[in-house]
Design a protein around this nucleic acid. Sequence first.
DNA 1: TGTACATCAGTGAACGCGCGTTCACTGATGTAC
DNA 2: TGTACATCAGTGAACGCGCGTTCACTGATGTAC
Lengths: 205, 205
Amino acid sequence: MAKRGYHHGDLRRALVDAALNLIEEKGPTGFTLSEAAKLAGVTPAAVYRHFEGRDDLIAEIARQGFETFADLMEYAYDTGQPSSLASFEATGHAYLAFARRHPGHYVAMFESGISINRTPELAQVAQRAFGVLEKAAAELSKNIPPDRRPPPQMFSAHVWALSHGVVELFARGAPGTKSPFPPEDLLEAGIGIYLRGLGLIDRDE
Amino acid sequence: MAKRGYHHGDLRRALVDAALNLIEEKGPTGFTLSEAAKLAGVTPAAVYRHFEGRDDLIAEIARQGFETFADLMEYAYDTGQPSSLASFEATGHAYLAFARRHPGHYVAMFESGISINRTPELAQVAQRAFGVLEKAAAELSKNIPPDRRPPPQMFSAHVWALSHGVVELFARGAPGTKSPFPPEDLLEAGIGIYLRGLGLIDRDE
DNA sequence: TGTACATCAGTGAACGCGCGTTCACTGATGTAC
DNA sequence: TGTACATCAGTGAACGCGCGTTCACTGATGTAC
């Protein structure tokens, strides 16, 4: 058995894990401080030794989520280099992969209602994540003739919106809104068509 | 003053309006039955004369929302006829216009957690709305050579996802996630690039 | 037109519940000597 | 090695709150005669 600290060992982490499970199961609304504490085998009051309160716990989950998210995006970007096209496509895949593999984090980040500017630390790590997408978009856009080149921020926004929409509508157990296509295929095809529209992929490719 | 019914006149409608205002202001979480009743100038218990409970009230709001949404989509579609391209683009605009003009309805429909299959009536009206988009996509796709034509359901899914993503990320007062572009422009440009990618708009147009 | 009656929308009090948060405390762990 | 002490993570009881929902009721409105 791993070394334990004072009493519980690593309650902070245990609370984060418990809260993640609850968020995954019941959505951001279904999560309560008390239940997370109970899941971690601890009194609700104990939570206050590690977090300022409910919102602080959610914010910490979001922060960890953005951290992982940014790492994945950066890794994907590097994987695609030196091709700016491959890098761009890889970040798109990474987005969806993150949402699938870390649904609780994703919810805490985008649906929990906590502000991305809640703390400077949170804002910074979120910016790191989005920065990767923007960088990939900026480099890719250099391949477009200047006269028909949309602002790179615009087209990273497009990819982000498409990815987010696919996640929300089709990648979740969202009741009643099922697609006949796997979300991965849907997103990949969508980005492919989009890039063709920008003239970045050959029409017959 | 308009004719009043028994006591309140039209409490059912007043409750829906009150709930809509609350949802717009505070999100789906912030809405409570008691507060909606209070806003309508009535005791919480009175709500049960008109709705089975909290969820039933939300579902009714979603139903009305889908009704309006479907009407707008159909109107937009008709406006674009006989050009399938114009019809398709018009439904895209209608999507965003609806989300902007009826934010409370939009939230009740897509973010409240109520299932689209809660009642057959709700499922039916939702299907009517999405059916317009699918029809527009199907007609448009006839202009694409069969060998490079993606399934029309796929491409209505793309437009839906892009629209939803733009709404969620950029069209709302979502804290911290602002785009330097108006959501309308963002969506229009995105759909334009996408249609170019499908070969439905000339590259130089 | 006036009276007696039926209807039923809305009242007001009450309920049980779980929430987030506070507080003085306890007792296991780590540390100094 | 053993003892006295300090630390502080977690306890347990309590709080005030607003929630959704129920119930017997009341009294304004509509209707029959």
